[in-house]
């Protein structure tokens, strides 16, 4: 007799990328529209997240309504700028290059104790200053490019690269951004290179984090959904990897929130007084 075998259920990270691309395109168009914007500004690092964000913005608004910015520092890897140019060309967007070396070195010159790690954060915050200034100059909304994995790990500069008000990739794990990037035609050189924040010469994300993104994302998905460690281990993940993922998530919750305010009333903002960010009452 014929035996028919079912497949076991489980959590799936793979997405229908054409559907996701369509959804995020609509998201960008609508989120800009109600804020009164028709143009967007994307800081393009040469990496896959910003290239994917640029592709979505070009689809949503038309390439002529998207400003791409490359913001290199003298210590940045030369290939970062090359890949930023490659991404801008691929999606038909003009690229403006602004060297942040004078801004960063101006500060560094008055703080000789600046460590490479701190200087990396200064670079990220210098980029944020340029992005927001040109947002006003061009009447273009800055788009965030951070993915869910780095947001969960706190692997970003607080009030730096997390500052833009609209972020299409923030609920996609790095693994999913790679899938979406391929769907949108992000150039192979960007897609295949090891991810790097390029804030300190020679760094890579996976070495900084001590984890592989593809493995970390599966652990994250199960951890966020409440599966116990033993279940995740049974899927083939090591105890120390799971521990590292949980450590990174749990020491960075504060980075995903607004600053802590001492609550003294029953109208404390975001504690008692709760309104969604798109809330507007018609005034008569």
């Amino acid at each position: 007799m014929r035996k028919v075998r079912g497949v076991p259920g489980g959590e799936v990270l793979a997405l229908d990328y054409p559907a996701v691309a369509d959804y995020l395109t609509r998201f960008l168009e609508r989120e800009l529209a109600w804020r009164g914007y028709t143009k967007a500004l994307v800081a393009v690092s040469g990496g896959v997240d910003s290239a994917t964000t640029l592709a979505l913005a070009a689809r949503a608004l038309g390439p002529e309504n998207v400003h791409a910015l490359a913001l290199p520092h003298a210590e940045s890897a030369p290939e970062s700028l090359e890949h930023a140019r490659l991404a801008a060309r691929a999606f038909g967007v003009d690229l403006e290059v602004i060297d942040i070396t004078p801004m960063v070195e101006g500060y560094a010159s008055v703080r000789p104790d600046l460590t490479p790690y701190r200087k990396g954060n200064v670079k990220a915050r210098a980029r944020m200053i340029v992005l927001f200034d040109l947002s006003m100059a061009y009447q273009a909304l800055p788009l965030g490019t951070g993915n869910k994995t780095e947001r969960l790990f706190g692997y970003f500069t607080w009030h730096g690269d997390d500052a833009p008000p609209v972020n299409p990739l923030g609920d996609l794990y790095k693994t999913q951004v790679w899938g979406l990037a391929e769907e949108l035609g992000v150039p192979e050189a960007i897609l295949k290179k090891p991810p790097t924040a390029d804030l300190i010469p020679g760094q890579t994300d996976e070495a900084d984090l001590g984890l592989s993104y593809r493995r970390a994302d599966v652990i994250l998905e199960h951890y966020l959904k409440g599966y116990p460690d033993a279940y995740i281990q049974a899927l083939g993940y090591r105890e120390e990897e799971i521990r590292r993922v949980k450590e990174l998530v749990n020491k960075t919750h504060y980075k995903r929130h607004l600053p802590t305010v001492a609550v003294v009333s029953t109208t404390a903002i975001h504690e008692f007084y709760l309104r969604p960010l798109d809330y507007r009452v018609e005034l008569t």
């Binding site: 799936v12 793979a14 997405l15 229908d16 054409p18 559907a19 996701v20 959804y23």
Partner: peptide, 9 residues
């Protein structure tokens, strides 16, 4: 919308 593993949420 939530759940994008197929062509429709």
């Amino acid at each position: 919308a939530r759940g994008f593993s197929g062509p429709r949420p």
